[in-house]
Simulated assay, not measured.
Amino acid sequence: MLVFFFDWLSGFFSFFDVFKYLTLRGILAVLTALGLSMAIGPLMIRRLTELKIGQSIRDDGPQTHLSKAGTPTMGGALILLSIGVSTLLWGDLTNYYVWVTLFVTLGSGLIGGLDDYLKLKYQNSKGLSARKKYFGLSLIAFVGVTILYLMAAGDTETTLFIPVFKDVSVNLGLFFIPWAYLVIVGSSNAVNLTDGLDGLAIMPTILVAAGLGVFAYVSGNSVFSGYLGIPYIAGVGEMVVFCATIFGAGLGFLWFNTYPAQVFMGDVGALALGAGLGIVAVVVRQEIVLAIMGGVFVMEAVSVILQVGSFKMTGKRIFRMAPIHHHFELKGWAEPKVIVRFWIITIVLVLVGLATLKVR
């Protein structure tokens, strides 16, 4: 929105040309999203507390979590508000990638919000049935990736690129739709499974968003992409602004979500952020890099799959409890120790993901 305004002003004062640069708009998007989160956060927490919108806690999990019952939830709405407003302010609204990304992210947040509402209404941790939740997320993802497929200007935008190997790629063609759909829905659920401890999900989300922002910047620049040997995709640079809003909004939310949390993000935030990371990875054609950088999310999801599969086939559990962060808690790790160590792992994995830019 402000891009148009500053573009008009640049006709009178050349100084305003500076706002055309992605780097500056990315920085301003971070600061805007952070400022909104910090300003609105206390008001939202107070209002959620007044409305008694508190989290229901599983009674079969770590007993230390029982004291968290009643902590305000649905704080993810604060993140989505900050992301939405900041993207609309600093993004190029003529770029269809911006609108598809917002649609998938906010649409997934709407499904998560309905799930949170039902949990609060019936005062249990079940909420929306798994089938209905999956259907809703699937519908949002399918619409988003279908638009990307129909709008694709060439094979590059529907090709799967393998990191490290410069000339190894697979032209997915029509199979781009189910592939991209699985990436988005899988990422959404993986982040949601990770959101079980104070600050555990939001910090890795911030770090992965920053990493994807780097890929978006170089993929949208013909010079940098050519030098690094990664696919050039016209217009994808605008994802820098979107990733920047996740970074800023996430930092603002972490201020209130850090241990001991004043507010939880709920499914409205977790499902949306996971879908947001997924759609950005699809747009910049770095789905495999997303799996590398988001290794903590992958680990959490795989731990649940293994636990359920093992129990159904053998009647035995692999972990003391899944997702795996609860396993470490039940082994005696203090909650902050689990959180910070998972953050450290994510930092390392994001650096590994970024290294694939040069190692080809």
Rank of each mutant, 00 (worst) to 15 (best):
D7P: 03
F12G: 04
F13S: 13
F19G: 04
Y21F: 14
L22F: 07
I27P: 00
L28I: 03
G35M: 11
I40R: 01
P42Y: 12
R47P: 01
Q55C: 00
Q55W: 09
G61F: 00
T64L: 11
S67F: 09
S67V: 05
L81R: 07
L89T: 00
W90T: 06
N95I: 11
Y97W: 14
Y97G: 09
F103E: 10
S108K: 05
G109V: 01
D115P: 03
Y117W: 11
L120I: 11
S125F: 06
R131Y: 15
K133M: 11
A141V: 14
F142E: 12
T158V: 15
P163K: 04
K166I: 04
D167M: 08
V168E: 07
N171A: 12
G173F: 13
I177F: 05
N189C: 12
A190H: 07
A201H: 02
A209G: 08
G211T: 10
S225A: 07
V236H: 01
T245W: 00
F247D: 04
A249Y: 00
L251I: 10
G252L: 00
G266D: 01
G269T: 03
L273H: 11
A275K: 13
G278H: 07
A281R: 03
E287F: 03
I288T: 14
M293Y: 11
A301G: 06
L306H: 12
L306V: 14
G309A: 14
S310H: 13
F311I: 13
M313L: 15
F328E: 05
F328N: 08
V340E: 03
I344M: 11
L349V: 08
L349M: 10
L351E: 15
R360F: 11
R360A: 08
